[in-house]
Amino acid sequence: MEAFLVRYSIYVVFLIVLVIWIGIAGWLWRLERRLVKLEQWARQHGGNRP
């Protein structure tokens, strides 16, 4: 059991961190696209720069 832990625990950590990062990256990507759309919309409707 201990030998198993020595061998594989870091891969569990890796998987957890990777999943978290994929989640964050996906969220950022979606946010970016939504913001671009919003900016386009704002430019079409008025679009004055402060």
Binding site: Y11, V13, F14, V17, L18, W21, A25, L28, W29
Partner: peptide, 17 residues
């Protein structure tokens, strides 16, 4: 965006694996 996502992915892989 690809550079950022890939760079972080690579960092995680190279740092942990």
């Amino acid at each position: 965006m690809a550079l950022c996502i890939g760079g972080m992915g690579l960092t995680i892989a190279l740092g942990l694996l």
